[in-house]
């Protein structure tokens, strides 16, 4: 059951006392320390903080890519840490979209094949796949590069394709780990505008980590992490 906070929005991600410890020799490092947060549908949220503050770890925990040392992660009301490995892979496939800092695209597939890749894994039929891929290519403004291979794209274009791929299967939310980290100003701007457009048009929920001020300025909610703890959680109307 989705947890409803008002008539329009429901909580899709909730964490409870989320902790992740890493061992460094004999000492323990708390990457996340009792993190409690909720993400509602349609949010455009940035997790910010200095390097080593636990942003990537938090995103990995929410995406089921890492197991918490203690605490729980609920996605759509379901405790994802109770899922078996196979179930978790399937759950991720159907519910979460991912955009990584680099190594996002499959080099041997074209742009359109990369976008439809997740849908094909999900078993979506060809007609639907083609329609959705065409829609997304239009949205990200890369219709003319549909048949290009990733090596022929710029960093910004690759990230836009990655966003389109993450979005193709209409997931509950998209996790983006430092999506603009390797991009120049113009490419970062274009990517952010694309993400915002998708957030508005398709009501896609974005949760991304960043320490890029340009991204922070566009986010509607900023969660600040320091030493694995949430120190600030602010909402903005932009």
């Amino acid at each position: 059951m989705n947890e409803v906070i008002n008539n329009n929005r429901s909580i899709i991600v909730r964490t409870e006392n989320l902790c992740k410890l890493f061992l460094n020799g004999k000492s323990e490092i708390k990457a996340t320390d009792h993190v409690n947060l909720s993400i509602t549908s349609g949010e455009f949220t940035a997790v910010v903080g200095p390097s080593g503050s636990g942003k990537t770890t938090l995103l990995n925990l929410i995406g089921g890519l890492a197991t918490p040392s203690s605490g729980r992660v609920f996605v759509k009301g379901k405790d994802i840490n109770q899922l078996k490995e196979k179930e978790l892979v399937k759950f991720r496939l159907h519910n979460i979209g991912f955009v990584f800092q680099f190594l996002n695209l499959i080099p041997v597939l074209t742009v359109e094949e990369n976008i439809s890749f997740i849908m094909e894994l999900q078993g979506t039929n060809k007609e639907q796949r083609n329609r959705r891929t065409a829609e997304l290519l239009e949205l990200i403004g890369m219709k003319d590069r549909a048949r290009s291979r990733p090596y022929a794209l710029s960093g910004g274009q690759k990230q836009r394709v990655a966003v389109a791929r993450a979005l193709a299967s209409k997931p509950l939310f998209i996790l983006a780990d430092e999506p603009t980290a390797n991009l120049d100003t113009e490419a970062a701007e274009t990517l952010l505008n694309t993400m915002l457009l998708l957030n508005e048009k398709e009501k896609v929920t974005f949760l991304f980590s960043t320490h890029d001020p340009r991204v922070m300025n566009k986010a509607r909610r900023l969660i600040t992490l320091e030493d694995g703890r949430i120190t600030k959680d602010e909402t903005y109307v932009r």
Binding site: G63, L65, K86, V89, K90, R92, L93, H94, I96, F98, F100, L103, N104, I106, P107, F117, I118, L121, R165, A166
Partner: peptide, 16 residues
């Protein structure tokens, strides 16, 4: 290795 890691993260199962 990195590519396989990405594929696993986005939901490509072990059988695939």
């Amino acid at each position: 290795k990195g590519e396989f890691s990405m594929l696993k993260k986005v939901g490509m199962g072990g059988n695939h």
